[in-house]
Design a protein around this nucleic acid. Sequence first.
DNA 1: TTGTGTGAATCCCTTCACAGCG
DNA 2: CGCTGTGAAGGGATTCACACAA
Lengths: 228, 228
Amino acid sequence: MTDFTRADPNGSTPYTSVTRRIPASTIRRLSHYLRSLEDLEGSGGATVSSEELAIRGQTTAAQVRKDLSHFGSFGKRGLGYQVDELRQRLCQILGVDRSWKVALIGAGRIGSALFEYPAFESRGYECVAIIDSDPAKIGTGRSGLQIHGPEDLESLLKGLGVELVILAVPARAAQEMAERAVAAGIKGILNFAPIRLKVPAHVPVEDVNLVMQLEALSFAITQRRSDA
Amino acid sequence: MTDFTRADPNGSTPYTSVTRRIPASTIRRLSHYLRSLEDLEGSGGATVSSEELAIRGQTTAAQVRKDLSHFGSFGKRGLGYQVDELRQRLCQILGVDRSWKVALIGAGRIGSALFEYPAFESRGYECVAIIDSDPAKIGTGRSGLQIHGPEDLESLLKGLGVELVILAVPARAAQEMAERAVAAGIKGILNFAPIRLKVPAHVPVEDVNLVMQLEALSFAITQRRSDA
DNA sequence: TTGTGTGAATCCCTTCACAGCG
DNA sequence: CGCTGTGAAGGGATTCACACAA
């Protein structure tokens, strides 16, 4: 469906625009590399090898080089990668060389916890609005932000130019909230509700599903047990 | 490394023990199917087709059948799957046909939020211990459980027979806590710290990395923008 | 000599297509 | 006839291996 087999004039602009389809696993690894590079900036030397990045990211040197090769060639043969330069490049690639306005929909326990997760702001994700349907919460505040009712969703998101939404509402409310957020122009959703959201293909959704991850653990443990 | 190419007498015991390597993506989909089946039990008929499960799980009918075929053949040709029977089977496979004793290490915002996440208990994950290093928290309680200091880790985990650990401590403390938990006999870790834990190969680790997921979103959005 | 960048080979997952059971 | 179960085909991602640049 929607076959974007675009002409590939290859190597046209190796830096900014990327043409080929990038595996999701590559993106996850880039996040790891970025964190490793940040660590290295404090403690390590000025350059890293793919080998070193591989060890820290629990992958292989070839994988590191292949991952990076999707976006250009950033290393020097015989030397490795300039730590600071590669870090900046990865920030660009991952789109974290800027700040993102985020709205929190659902100020329950999980939502609120996230809100003060320190790692968010350090990456430029800035919470600019909180929405919750609980009348007892509306009007009260969290770290300088007032909690609004769901009826304000459209005006808030549009008015503030929100691009990302953290959706942390009960499953039954999630689909509707997602649709309204998309209609209000948001560009991506981090979804905590344990359902598969139906949104237009151009709106990426990342699912956070803790029960599923626990199930993966109990499967792995049970599995191992029943071998042997 | 560690090549477990085991003899494959094939089809020996199609139900309980499984020999072949199962893709992680299959396990994630099984979780979805399980949830769908639970929904169906309330509202739907007594049987489902792979087609129906595929739609609800956002995959294909062939994929559903292939996923299930790793574990046996649970359907009736021409009919589909018995909803209740398949649900039970999936519970067995995922290891949620029993309860799991879970300890929470790190009672910060994220940790505490999880603790009252309703979906956990409904799947049999039972929090039996909370550990935190903050002297102000130790001795106080959360929903009937007292918070213990890190020095009690070993005795608590062993004494209570804890099998799963939710690790929600700052990155710098995570590796040490993980090692102590493993030494205390736990069997799996749900890790919220943004580092790659080094643990023995027989201890499965599931990483929850929200910053990484946000980065995946900003990448996808930026990516899309720089095409066209 | 060292360590990157990359085609080629390999491995693994998904999709296809159909035989076969109910 | 309907729908599962499954070998075979196909497509992607990882790994290999080496040419090449510093």
